[in-house]
Design a binder for these strands. Structure first.
Lengths: 219, 219
DNA sequence: ATACTATTTGAATCCTTCTTCAAAAGAGCC
DNA sequence: GGCTCTTTTGAAGAAGGATTCAAATAGTAT
């Protein structure tokens, strides 16, 4: 028997398991048994915590989305320079590889949004939040005189998020020529035009986020 | 009994039915019975033509993709002016509404591409073809002196297709602020910077494609 | 008309999944 | 250690989908 756990803890596990099962089988195709197996439990145990599988799937998508967003925010929180911040932000919106589960979950969500209003709302909310995030960076850069925006910040921010999204799909679909590096460069090409800043690409992402004020060593 | 048809004809019907069923239920979740019902047949009849449902689903996706691409090509074939051609092309890559089944099928494909290599290839192929299509337009515009490209045509073309893709998802997910018109304007904003051309937005798409040489009436 | 053949149906069978629930088993408490 | 409450299992039953195939049917050819 699987080690017994407390309700909240187990529910957390189940959300994680659901995430994995969704990525593997698809949101609309995943079976209760598959989620149970991913969690190392039987279907009965899953049902004990989530009498309706759809509730669990929704929570999994919701959690995945929040995680994706929080992770990005954390990665850029300590960066003061708007140009560097923009570069890192662009990077953090792309999958690290075709097997990046966080992004694959979002792609999954995109596929289902057309036929599920709740998922559609979730995805739209994420998009809008990301747009706002970019807008802040752009406006800050402009205020500091670093950026000369080619148009209003909302338009640029919307396009930046759109580009990220789209290249996420390309990378997840294993485009033979467009990987994370190439995608970042393509987006940067737009970002340079839009900000009037040279935006040199960031070095390999550091293991830990740098403390504010320290400079990345040149390479 | 459903009216009997010839093999090729019925297979065509089935591909259409599968398309509809996929959009409604999801590529990975759709059941044989649902496809059969969409075609107005029984599951046995479907199996008679496609012993393996996956083959049918693949053909449906393939056909949907080809159709989408062909339709675009047809819409722009008769347009000589590169600027107008670019504007119309951008429009034709966006869903006409959140219920545009052609685009919804492609979104579906994007969701499944992460876990199905064949679908991934299909989607990648479409992307590359669209990039080439845009490249032709851009290069032609440059050769004629109409465009002053901000960078190499491949980069611009890749970004244009990426923007289209992404806004397709936004529209299908019913973003409350971004519909076909707004998306077109956002993409045009980028296209203007990239081509150095004012690219005034096209009037409402005409019922029939205009013959080459005729001018759209002003409004 | 008739016969022929390709297509479609519908019923039977087999499988898989969902759902329910009594019983088992861990975890915490006294 | 024994008691209690919560969590988990496993079995059983219900529901539905996939697959197979003989029989029916509708076009097509003669």
């Amino acid at each position: 028997m699987a080690t017994r756990k407390r309700k909240t803890e187990r529910r957390q596990d189940l959300i994680e398991a659901a995430r994995r099962a969704i990525v593997q089988y698809g949101t609309d195709a995943v079976h209760l048994n598959q989620v149970a197996e991913a969690a190392g439990l039987t279907s009965g145990a899953v049902l004990y915590h989530y009498p309706d599988l759809n509730d669990l799937l929704l929570e999994a998508h919701h959690a995945g989305m929040e995680r994706f967003y929080d992770l990005r925010m954390k990665k850029i929180a300590s960066i003061a320079d708007p140009a560097e911040k923009l570069v890192v932000t662009i990077r953090s919106g792309l999958p690290s590889s075709p097997d990046d589960d966080d992004v694959r979950l979002l792609c999954e969500l995109g596929g289902s949004a057309g036929r599920n209003r709740v998922y559609a709302t979730l995805l739209t909310t994420l998009y809008d939040r990301q747009v706002t995030m970019y807008q802040m960076i752009l406006e800050t850069g402009r205020a500091q005189g670093a950026f000369t925006l080619s148009g209003d910040s909302q338009t640029i921010a919307r396009n930046l998020v759109a580009l990220e999204d789209a290249y996420g799909y390309r990378i997840v679909a294993r485009h033979p020529l467009i990987g994370p590096d190439e995608a970042a460069e393509l987006i940067l090409d737009y970002a340079r035009q839009a900000t009037g800043h040279p935006l040199r690409p960031a070095p390999e992402p550091a293991r830990k986020p740098r403390a504010a004020g320290t400079t990345p060593k040149a390479r």
